[in-house]
């Protein structure tokens, strides 16, 4: 129960479900449209930002032992 990766997977597991669920609702209800370049770019920025946080936290765990 004390692996440093357990909190990482717990947090990003639950948050990713929430992230995808709310994004899908926004798409399904036409609040954003992937056919429009501006909105497609905004969605991409949000996904990239989320990935940056995942990479940042994973890097911190890896480099803690250095």
């Amino acid at each position: 129960m004390n692996s440093p990766w357990l909190p990482f997977f717990y947090q990003y597991g639950i948050c990713t479900v929430f992230f995808i669920f709310t994004t899908m609702i926004a798409l399904k209800k036409d609040v954003i449209s992937l056919s429009h370049p501006t909105e497609r770019r905004i969605l991409l920025e949000i996904i990239v930002g989320y990935l940056l946080f995942i990479i940042f936290h994973a890097s911190m765990i890896i480099f803690a032992g250095v």
Binding site: C15, T22, F53
Partner: peptide, 24 residues
Amino acid sequence: GFSSTMTYLNDWFILPLFVFIWLP
């Protein structure tokens, strides 16, 4: 230690809900 930052670094997941739905 550095885990003190975890409170401030976990807000990004609510962004789709906030910017696409709640803000408008």
